[in-house]
């Protein structure tokens, strides 16, 4: 299958005053298209840093990061912003919706960076809202939605521009179990139906159980990659 994610020998450290703190230590990960990867590990292990590199929010000190067919570690900031707009969707733990905008307008945001007409944007947004099952809540502002619904709006926003890769940082960290299951089932469906490749950072082993692959990071080092043995949620998809 086609490689969607190619991370080779990546090193990343941060400056903290006079000290240099190593975060990722010669990390290599390869992911095929439409896989659903869970990145687990303890706090401070480097999993969010890895996610930021994959999402083009940060660049490594050394190594190669190729995502969705493009090498992004050598791109300028502006080029990475353009690349993010067309290739990656982001889902955050706290949804990060804009409170004064309706769900529909929040989902439309990534399309504002494109040259799509208003009619084309409407078609895309309506489709994304339908995909996450919130077409009837399009006019509601975030405060009028539950946490699970807000996260589904965030997923619709991440999907609306048809990105090849979806990066999710603790997407169920702020949700109750039922809402978390609904969001994870949605993510698993997106990968299984060949819509997006998904990389998800999570603390929760149960959430990781929805992924098709899992890697564990500890102290900036990738432990033995493993294939998730059972995918109970997918049985219901």
């Amino acid at each position: 299958m086609e490689q969607e994610l190619f991370i080779d020998d990546v090193v990343k450290s941060y400056r903290r005053g006079r000290d240099t703190v190593p975060v990722l230590d010669h990390v290599s990960v390869v992911l095929e298209r439409f896989e659903f990867l869970a990145v687990t590990g303890p706090s401070g292990s480097g999993k969010t840093t890895l996610l930021n590199l994959i999402g083009g929010l940060d660049t490594p000190d050394s190594g190669i990061v190729r995502v969705a067919g493009e090498r992004i570690d050598t791109m300028s900031n502006a080029a990475r912003a353009r690349w993010r707009a067309r290739s990656v969707g982001f889902v955050f733990q706290f949804y990060n919706l804009i409170p004064a905008l309706s769900a529909w307008r929040n989902v439309e945001l990534p399309l504002l960076t494109t040259t799509l007409t208003a009619a084309e944007r409407k078609r895309h947004v309506d489709a994304a809202m339908t995909l996450v099952g919130l077409a009837d809540r399009a006019r509601h502002v975030p405060a009028e939605l539950s946490g699970g619904q807000q996260q589904r709006v965030a997923i619709a926003r991440a999907l609306v521009a048809d990105p090849r890769v979806l990066v999710c940082d603790e997407p169920t960290g702020d949700l109750d179990r039922a809402s978390a299951d609904a969001v994870l089932e949605l993510l698993a469906t997106l990968a299984a139906s060949g819509r997006s490749t998904i990389v998800m950072v999570t603390h929760d082993p149960r959430a990781a159980g929805y992924a098709t692959r899992e890697i564990h990071i500890d102290k900036g080092v990738v432990m033995q990659p493993q294939v998730t043995p059972a995918q109970p949620a997918l049985a219901n998809v």
């Binding site: 900031n77 912003a81 993010r84 990060n96 804009i98 960076t113």
Partner: peptide, 14 residues
């Protein structure tokens, strides 16, 4: 700031 960060994350240029 957080909203600005979100806009930048989803591809809005500086």
């Amino acid at each position: 700031m957080p909203q600005t960060a979100v806009l930048k994350t989803i591809g809005f240029s500086s």
